[in-house]
């Protein structure tokens, strides 16, 4: 609903002067644009939280900006400070390095800073840190894999875009399967992209005649992996483990699909949590600072209902 986002920003901008003298506070939210599935979900939850909180707290105004690259995000944040004089900033940095300086400036201007998911390169800037647990995501996935393959087995791994996030997840996964007898035949980057994952999986299938399971590490990649397995008609693969909690995948877990027995969350809704906690802190002066780490949870047919949001785009 990107068109709606910009509409909202304009509406907020127009109504701002009327409230300027009284106690209205402005919260700026800066996030990356919806360029892949998870980010799309994150955009949805951010928008939804802003709408809900805007209605709930008349004394709060929100400015939401999405950026398609780090420099655009820096511009967005500078504009928020210069033209809207924000009291708090909720930011999911595109990349850590380039955003650290600009966010530090916001902090020095006296505003509250909430950083989401990706930490800045200098510690102690943010008042509040809300993040998913990337090593934990890998660990939970690895533990499930070890439990599902009690006698060990041969697996292949699809990695995301080469980043710290991806490295932390893979390290966590490898630690968790240590000693379980599981052998990783090969790892390649599928870039959190369906088409790339399809291609990589096809080549894995050509290369390895016997594969017991696949850690796709992401639900978008799991879609591509499943497509490749179907096409090849291979029966040796027992299951595919994705990750992040895409609704279609949760649905398949819920429906007891044998190929998708479980999923591991990395909830895009963490942005909503961050915005909500920031809003509460601003309105009530309640002590909300600190680190909030949202753990990754294993989704199984038993608890799948709690993680199924049919209206979310993700």
């Amino acid at each position: 609903m990107k068109h709606f986002v910009s509409g909202l920003a304009v509406a907020v901008a127009l109504s701002a002067p009327a409230f300027a003298q009284d106690d209205t506070k402005v919260i700026g939210v800066s996030i990356p644009a919806a360029t892949h599935g998870w980010a799309g979900g994150m955009n949805y939850f951010a928008q939804e939280a802003v709408d809900r909180l805007d209605a709930a707290y008349p004394q709060l105004d929100f400015v939401l900006a999405t950026a398609s690259d780090p420099s655009k995000q820096v511009n967005d944040i500078e504009d928020m400070v210069a033209t809207r004089n924000i009291d708090a900033l909720v930011v999911l940095p595109f990349e850590s390095e380039p955003l650290t300086g600009p966010v530090q400036n916001v902090k020095q201007s006296g505003a509250w800073v909430t950083v989401v998911d990706r930490g800045l390169s200098v510690e102690g800037i943010e008042d509040l840190y809300v993040a998913g647990d990337n090593p934990g995501f890998g660990r939970v996935s690895g533990e499930y894999m070890a439990q599902a393959l009690p006698d060990g087995g041969k697996i292949v791994v699809l990695r995301g875009i080469p980043t710290t996030i991806d490295n932390e997840r893979v390290e966590g996964f490898q630690q968790a399967i240590e000693g379980s007898g599981i052998e990783i035949l090969g790892m390649e980057h599928g870039n959190w992209n369906r088409d790339d994952a399809f291609t990589v999986m096809q080549d894995f299938l050509s290369k390895y005649p016997e594969i017991d399971a696949v850690w796709a590490s992401d639900d978008d990649m799991a879609v591509g992996v499943l497509g490749a397995i179907d096409a090849a008609g291979r029966e040796d693969i027992n299951f595919v483990l994705g990750g992040a909690g895409m609704k279609e995948m949760i649905k398949r877990v819920k429906d007891n699909d044998a190929m998708i027995p479980a999923d591991v969350t990395y909830p895009p809704s963490m942005i909503a949590t961050a915005i909500e906690v920031t809003a509460v802190g601003l309105v009530s002066n309640a002590p909300v600072s600190g680190d909030f780490i949202i753990g990754s949870v294993l989704v199984t047919p038993e608890n799948a209902d709690d993680f199924y949001f049919p209206d979310s785009p993700f």
Binding site: K2, D230, E248
Partner: peptide
């Protein structure tokens, strides 16, 4: 992106199964 609301547009599952032979 706008058509997909920032997410993914998916073809109806049964229709996809019917249409799949065009690729496979």
């Amino acid at each position: 992106t706008w058509l997909a609301d920032g997410g993914t547009l998916s073809l109806d599952f049964t229709l996809r199964s019917f249409y799949q032979p065009v690729y496979y």
